[in-house]
Each structure stands twice: as structure tokens, then as C-alpha cells.
Nucleic acid binder design. Structure first.
Lengths: 198, 198
DNA sequence: TGTACATCAGTGAACGCGCGTTCACTGATGTAC
DNA sequence: TGTACATCAGTGAACGCGCGTTCACTGATGTAC
């Protein structure tokens, strides 16, 4: 055998390149030739690690879903138990900001998410990842609001998920063109309203 | 002269076809050949009324912006003055639902809007329309909340704009997969919170 | 009234390009013996 | 220790296709005279 290369590592390298292209040009900009260039490989080499275009997009979608899951898991909702007032607000905001575009890294991650979610409207290949992300985020938000004693946590979580989605879109497009400060201000106002009755 | 055809009417016919393609396949699905097929014209005829692909997309974006403006103007915010309680809530919800995907027609309109807004992230051609839509919607929401006596109406309007964007995305993609009833329930809960202190 | 022409709606072939896919190939290296 | 081979990473040309664009063209009709 020749192999010294870890195939999984190569796949990750290619998926990283695909993510950069999604950020730069959108989902439709992810062609095998551009991914090859961006990842420093030959188009044939990309094909060696992925069955084709669809397979690459599927793998990228799965990776994006995994990352969203990991970011959400990094702030266990149990840490919110017992908090009230400004402390509760701060902790909840920190949890939510895990998935918000408030710095360069999170901005890129958020762009990949909204691009893939929008693409899932017409491309069935992204549907599973799209539903999983909404489900994972919704579950964490509901748990967090439950732990903090918010009534009707399912509706409140749906409101919060909508605010997160809307603010993210407004922050990464000319629509709204939200600054980071403005985004955090509006988010905080919304969280304050949600916790208002507690 | 030969002309009997109203050029503006033909342009509208072509733009309508482009909108249908955006709904079916997304912005990237709008090719001149498909638009020609969809509008029942020859590709050369489409070219006769638009300078090219970019010009067609620009015209479609402007039309989408005009429609958004017209929908918002249909419910003057002055009509809200003096309303309180459930009546205020009903009137505000009716205003907001003008731009929400709660029936087939509004769903198609909303899809075109979110598709073009997302496209504006990477395609400068859509930037003006995208900013204009956010600005028009924001102004109407701020006015409405002002008239209803909501404090800090600028932040409240930004929250509401975010909820509108997020709910729309969740309603037209597998992400969230919101039913119309659920969408209206979550929207009403948010409006109730915004008006809560009045 | 009749004729020539200017105007413009509409046609469709041809171009070069980037795309996903296919496939025969090279070359390096670990293993078998 | 040395040699043959199996394995697999990586290469890049070739294919057919849909794309935006270009352009020479047809044909109908209103106008000029």
C-alpha cells in the first residue's frame, strides 16, 4: 500500500475550501474546479475523495450541522439554572451569541448556515441538515428558557429562533446591514422582553 | 412603425416568468433560456426587451422592491392611531401579515424577497433593492409602533423586522417548516410582547 | 387610393466558456516471498 | 536483503451540456407622399 495520507483529513481540507467558497460566492459558487483550486488539489484528486459534486455538498452540509451541534453543546443549559436578573440575561445572551455573527469566525459559520438553509428550499440534498439545525437550536433554546422559568417556552423559543435567523440575515447582507453593536443591542432587548415576566 | 405591443407590458410578462423561476429554482435558476420558455417567448425576444441577463435581474429586483413598497402602503399606519388592546394587536398583525407568507400569493412574493435579499450578499446588483426593502419595512414598522405608543420604537421595530425575516425563512424552507397557523401564533405572541407595556 | 419605406417585434444559429462526469493513466510505497 | 506486485493517491484530457452573448435575419405595420 502507498497510503500515508489520512483520507478523512483530506476530506476535511476539501470541505474547508468549499466553506470558503460558500462565504465568498454562495452555494452556487461551489464547483469542483473552484474547490480544487481553493484546496490546492487537482480536480481529479477531489473526485478521488468524493463521489462527485452532490457527495461533496452532502458532506459539507453534514459537517456544517455537526459544527452547529458542537457550538450549541459548548454552553450546557444547566449552567443557567438559578440565575435571575442581569446574570440570567448575560448567560442567555452568551448562549445565543454562540451562533451569531459577532466576530469574523462566527460570521463565516453563520453565513454557511444561512446559505445552506436557503438552498434547502429548492435542493433536497440540504433538507435533512436544515431540519436538524432548526431542531437542535430549538431544543436548546426551549431548554434554556425552561430552566430560566419562562412561561410558554415553546412559543418563546420559536420567537427567539426567528429573531436569531432574522438578525443573522440582516447582519450578513446589505438588507439591514446591522453592525455588531446594533445586533447585540437588538438581541439583548429581545431577551430582556422574553425574561421580562420572570 | 409596426408596434402595437406595449413594451412595458412585455417586460412585465418576462419579469413575471423570472419570478416564477425564482420561486421554483432560486435566483440561480433564472437563465435567459428558461425565462424565454417560461414566458412563451424566444430567447432573442427576451433579449429584445432587456439588454442582457443583468438587466433582466435588475428590472426584476426593482419590480420586487416596488411591490414590497405597494404592499406596505396599502395599510397606512395612521389607521392604527387610537387603537388599544386586542384591536391594536389585530390591526398591527394585519399590517405585518401583508408581507408574510400566509397564503399562496404572499408565499411566492415572500420567497422572491428572501431569495433576492440572500443573493444581495454576493451580487452587488441586488444591494440597492435589498437596502430599500429593509428601509421601507423598517420605516413602516417604526411608524406603526410609534403611533401605538410603544417605547423605544426603533429597537422594537428592529426586533419585529428580525422576527418577520426569521419566520419567513422558517416558513418557506425545511428549516423550521412552520405551518401558517404556527407562524401566526408565534407572530401574535411577539406582537403581544411588544405592545405589552402599552 | 396606392405604393415605397422606415420602424421595430421577434427569430434562431453560432461563439466561447465553465460546468460535472468519465476514464485511462502515472507514480510512490507498503507487503509478500 | 532484494525483487515483484498490489494498492491507492493523484493527474489531466475529453465528453456533452447549458449558459450569456452576438448578430444577421424575417416579417408585419404605420407613415409619407
Amino acid at each position: 500500500m502507498p497510503a500515508r495520507i489520512d483520507p478523512e483529513q483530506r476530506r476535511q481540507q476539501v470541505i474547508e475550501a468549499a466553506f470558503r467558497l460558500v462565504v465568498e460566492e454562495g452555494v452556487e459558487g461551489v464547483s469542483l474546479r473552484k474547490v480544487a483550486d481553493e484546496s490546492g488539489l487537482n480536480i481529479g484528486s477531489v473526485r478521488h475523495y468524493f463521489d462527485g459534486h452532490s457527495d461533496l455538498l452532502s458532506a459539507a452540509a453534514e459537517e456544517a450541522g455537526d459544527r452547529m451541534g458542537r457550538r450549541l453543546s459548548a454552553h450546557p443549559t444547566e449552567g443557567l439554572r438559578g440565575l435571575t436578573g442581569e446574570a440570567a440575561l448575560d448567560a442567555l445572551q452568551a448562549l445565543v451569541e454562540t451562533v451569531m455573527p459577532i466576530d469574523a469566525a462566527r460570521r463565516d459559520e453563520a453565513i454557511v448556515v444561512v446559505e445552506l438553509v436557503m438552498a434547502s428550499r429548492t435542493k433536497p440534498i440540504f433538507a435533512t441538515m436544515s431540519m436538524r439545525m432548526a431542531s437542535d437550536l430549538g431544543a436548546v433554546l426551549r431548554e434554556a428558557l425552561d430552566v430560566l422559568g419562562v412561561a410558554e417556552s415553546d412559543v418563546a423559543a420559536a420567537q427567539l429562533a426567528a429573531v436569531i435567523g432574522g438578525l443573522t440575515t440582516d447582519a450578513v447582507t446589505p438588507h439591514g446591514a446591522l453592525s455588531i453593536d446594533r445586533l447585540r443591542t437588538v438581541l439583548r432587548a429581545h431577551l430582556r422582553m422574553l425574561l421580562g415576566s420572570v
